[in-house]
C-alpha cells in the first residue's frame, strides 16, 4: 500500500506539469488550430527566468512575476511575428514554424542564461511529509495545488468573462466570431499569452523538484503534446486528465514493471488510445457545444 501511495504521489506531481503544458497546447490549438511546439519552452523561461532574476537580487515573488511576464511577451511575439504572418499555411508548415521557434528560443536561452542545471529553493521547506508510509515533498502539494488553481482560474475566465467567452466563440467558429464583432486577432494573441503564462507558472512550480536547464522544454513539449492528444485535442479537461494519466502510468510503469522504457509509456499509450478511440479519450472538441 505504501508503495502504491508513493507511486501515486510521484505520478500526480509529474503528471500535473504535463497537464499544465497540455492545457497550453489546448488553448492555442482551440483558438488558432496551431500546435505550438514551443509550449515547453515557456516552462523553461518560467523556471530559468526566476532562477536568474533571483540570483540577480530580485525577491522571489518579484522574480516569478517578471519571469511570467517575460514568457507572456515571448508568447505574444511568437504569435505576432511567426504564427500570424503564416496564416493559412498547412498544419505541417505551422508545426515546423513553432519547432523553429523552439530551436530559436533554446539558442537564445543558452546565450542569455547558461548551459548549467539550476534549481530553486522549495516554497515551503524540503522536509518530506509522510502519509501512510509514503513520503513526498511539500513542493508536490504546491505543484498539484497550483495546477488546480490554474484550472479553476481558467474556467472562471472562459465562462465568466467577456474576453473568455470571445475566446471560446473564436474556438468554436472563427467566421461567426468575426461576424458578431469579435476582434479575432486580439483573441488569438490572448490565447498565446495565457498559454505562455500557464507554461511559465508550471516551470516555476516544478523547478524546485525537477531542476531546469535551457533545453528542458523539448521533453515537456513532447509529453504535454502526448497528454493533450490522449485526452482528445482541444479539450481542456481531457488535457488535464491526459497529463495526470501519463504521469501516473509512467510512475507505475517504473515502479512495478521496469524503468527502461518509461519514456515510451506516453507514446505507447497514445498509440493504444488512438487505435481504440481515434479522437482521444474525451472525444473531439466538446467546446463546439458553446
Amino acid at each position: 500500500m505504501s508503495e502504491f501511495l508513493q507511486l501515486v504521489f510521484s505520478g500526480l506531481t509529474v503528471g500535473a506539469v504535463y497537464a499544465l503544458v497540455a492545457l497550453g497546447f489546448t488553448l492555442v490549438y482551440n483558438a488558432s488550430d496551431v500546435i505550438n511546439f514551443a509550449q515547453g519552452d515557456f516552462v523553461m523561461i518560467g523556471g530559468m527566468g526566476t532562477v536568474f532574476l533571483a540570483a540577480a537580487g530580485f525577491s522571489l515573488p518579484l522574480a516569478t512575476l517578471i519571469a511570467i511576464l517575460a514568457a507572456v511577451v515571448v508568447g505574444l511575439l511568437l504569435h505576432r511575428l511567426a504564427v500570424e504572418p503564416a496564416r493559412g499555411a498547412s498544419p505541417v508548415t505551422l508545426i515546423m514554424i513553432t519547432i523553429g521557434a523552439s530551436i530559436f528560443i533554446k539558442g537564445v536561452a543558452q546565450l542569455v542564461f547558461d548551459k548549467q542545471f539550476h534549481s530553486l529553493p522549495p516554497f515551503s521547506g524540503a522536509d518530506p511529509i509522510s502519509i501512510g508510509g509514503a513520503s513526498f515533498l511539500p513542493q508536490s502539494l504546491w505543484v498539484i495545488g497550483g495546477t488546480l488553481a490554474i484550472l479553476i482560474a481558467l474556467w472562471l475566465f472562459l465562462e465568466k468573462t467577456l474576453l473568455g467567452k470571445a475566446l471560446l466563440a473564436t474556438a468554436a467558429n472563427r467566421l461567426a466570431a468575426l461576424l458578431v464583432g469579435i476582434n479575432v486577432r486580439v483573441v488569438l494573441a490572448l490565447a498565446f499569452a495565457v498559454s505562455a503564462a500557464i507554461g511559465a507558472v508550471a516551470g516555476i512550480l516544478v523547478t524546485p523538484i525537477t531542476l531546469t536547464r535551457y533545453d528542458v522544454g523539448t521533453l515537456f513539449a513532447l509529453k504535454g503534446f502526448a497528454a493533450a492528444m490522449v485526452g482528445g485535442m482541444g479539450h481542456p479537461v481531457g488535457a488535464v486528465a491526459g497529463g495526470l494519466l501519463i504521469g501516473l502510468m509512467e510512475a507505475f510503469g517504473a515502479g512495478y514493471v521496469s524503468s527502461t522504457y518509461k519514456d515510451a509509456v506516453a507514446f505507447v499509450m497514445i498509440l493504444v488510445v488512438l487505435f481504440a478511440m481515434p479522437q482521444g479519450l474525451f472525444g473531439r472538441r466538446s467546446l463546439e457545444r458553446v
Partner: peptide
C-alpha cells in the same frame, strides 16, 4: 534500476 537522461523524478525506482 535505471532512469532516462531527462527524467525528473526517480522516486518510483528508488522506492523499489
Amino acid at each position: 534500476e535505471s532512469y532516462g537522461p531527462s527524467d525528473a523524478d526517480m522516486t518510483p525506482q528508488l522506492n523499489k
